[in-house]
Amino acid sequence: MSSDVKKEKIIRKGAEASLYSGYWFGKNVIFKCRIPKKYRIEELDKRIRTERTLNEARALIKVKNYGINVPQVFEIDSTTSTIVMKYIQGNKLKDILANLDDDLKKKYFYEIGRTIATLHKNGHIHGDITTSNIIITSEGNIFLIDFGLHEYSDTIEDKSVDLHLLKRVLISSRGSNYEYCFNAFLEGYRSRYREIDINECDEIIKNIKAIESRGRYIKPEDRL
């Protein structure tokens, strides 16, 4: 990377990556570096980091076409597992959730529901929909980030699993008012998904319950 590219300071050590703020040809950017995880053996670790980096970069570029707000990708370096992307000025939903009034909660979650439905109906699974991976800008725009676990899929199961994660994160977040938020999310999700197939949409939502019951103690007849 040239001298017009400057990695300044670490802003966050995420679960998977270290994030640095900096500049890239005059633009405010984020360097997302998937650092080696020493708990995994090197071979496996390298494979996962490279896979996820390429996967994330491709997905970010791809889903932009559907009009979804995601950070623009400027550069990819698979040897260091780094993505340089636009810095999104705003707040993580997780950090502001407890202080949002009901109207805003409803507005945001409805909009998030529509966004995820847009992904799903185009065959994209985000893979990690949590309140840490949604940024709200000061204009109230919603940005999705963290596409490392993105997958292409058109199955009901994969879409349900995607929603199931958000549901659980909301249940376990203090001050989230889970039912209210998740209902607003589902309303938004249905409103967009129904444009292609309302029956499939209902099946996806129904299947969340089935997934929940599976995580329970596995009956012997279901064991191998």
Partner: peptide
């Protein structure tokens, strides 16, 4: 029989992550 990541939050032991199919020991 179980593979669960859990923590206490909002008065319950919440499940943050779990297996979608087999439990690790069973596998």
């Amino acid at each position: 029989g179980n593979t669960i990541v859990s923590a206490f939050e909002s008065n319950r032991y919440q499940i943050f992550g779990e297996t979608l199919d087999l439990a690790i020991g069973n596998m």
